[in-house]
Nucleic acid binder design. Structure first.
Lengths: 217, 217
DNA sequence: ACCGAACCGTAACGTACGGTACGGCATCAG
DNA sequence: CTGATGCCGTACCGTACGTTACGGTTCGGT
């Protein structure tokens, strides 16, 4: 070791070839979970173990790079805060809810969260922190402006945006993520996801919708 | 192997000495996570590895016995369904909520859920299934009669008890469990737990409380 | 055509750990 | 007292896997 920290740690992202490797890791992670071996990765990615160590330092570095790579792929559509009415807000919330449900129920997310949870039990708390940061907290950062815009427009009422967001989060996710992580087979069809998104949004509006109508006066 | 499945698998529970061993495993699991070794368990429990293998079969058997042992320790206070009014129902729900929050935020639960999640990624899905069964599903089985009693008494309104329970679950747990599992340091004082229990209960009543008053007429 | 860098495939090394075997000691039945 | 049983402590074995080392190949630059 070790300042072969690899060019991945800072600056520009992975090269195309490295991305291929990380995608291979992602696929292997879904299939094998945390039991994946460096040899298996090298075989699947058609590269040498030496290259893996040169690029990523060690096994943890490889996993970290993989988590960041996957997180970077999750793109989001921000919401314009102007001309917000109840219909637009409802649509935004439903969009957030169904997107989030689709993410947490995807094979990739489940596999990634599993290894991150496992590593959070060890010293290496990095993976868990990254997943939290790019998952739960990123969602909060994107959603809170929407909620505050809704409050600004007189559509929503709440004291603390963070608390309001956590309520929405709970209404959307409920027991889905923990059940999936623990191995429960849950069928989530497109229709069910959309239905759950609508239900969660309606429940949230019932709790935090302004009773007094828009304050536009 | 193998039919040394040990006397733990069926029939009566572990002996006092075996309980001591399992408690040691529990403590070690909190400290070390899934990295605990059989040697470490033997050392901590002051027993020989040979005895561990004789009693529990193998490492998975030991972990399974530990999870079941911990689950067996969680006791519950059922609610009497007669003479149910809004105050009693509210108290019951708040009790359930604070109990659940205390469980999922306990060191033991976190450690146990971590290993169960890890194992759910492998072939050994047993641990996850046990944790789910004795945790999330056991809670549902205990709470749904309460909800239905509330509906019976005209205090609550909902179509499906399972769906209503999952809403309550989401309002109570929100992002707490996943954040803890991923290594987020959350401070949960007694006051906050109680406050969250009250908030979740009020939100649930706002969503599912009968608007028409008790049907007692 | 030649050189070096980068990389592949594979072999080798060291270690940690699951699982087993064995020698002592304590307890208890007879 | 004696033999059997159950368990502790420890040494031991086999293997899996992270990590390193090395020979061979490709390729871009000169």
């Amino acid at each position: 070791m070790l300042q072969a920290v690899s060019e991945m740690m800072e600056g520009e992202g992975p090269t195309a070839r490295q991305q291929d490797v990380l995608d291979a890791v992602l696929r292997l992670l879904v299939e094998e979970g945390d039991r994946l071996t460096m040899a298996a990765v090298a075989r699947r990615a058609s590269c040498s173990k030496e290259t893996l160590y040169k690029w990523f330092g060690d096994r943890d570095g490889l996993l970290t790079a993989t988590v960041q790579w996957q997180a970077a792929k999750v793109r989001v559509t921000p919401v314009d805060r102007k001309g917000l009415d109840l219909a637009a807000l409802t649509a935004s919330l439903e969009r957030f809810a169904s997107d989030w449900l689709r993410v947490i129920s995807s094979d990739t997310s489940i596999a990634l969260n599993r290894v991150a949870v496992g590593h959070a039990g060890s010293d290496k708390r990095d993976l868990g922190a990254i997943v939290l940061e790019r998952g739960r907290f990123a969602l909060g950062r994107r959603l809170k402006p929407v909620l505050e815009a809704g409050r600004e427009a007189g559509i929503l009422e709440f004291d603390d945006a963070e608390t309001a967001f956590r309520t929405f989060f709970g209404l959307v996710a409920r027991d889905v993520q923990i059940r999936l992580l623990l191995g429960d087979r849950i069928e989530l069809t497109e229709a069910e996801v959309d239905g759950d998104a609508v239900r969660a949004t309606q429940q949230f509006l019932a709790l935090h919708g302004a009773k007094t109508g828009p304050k536009a006066l």
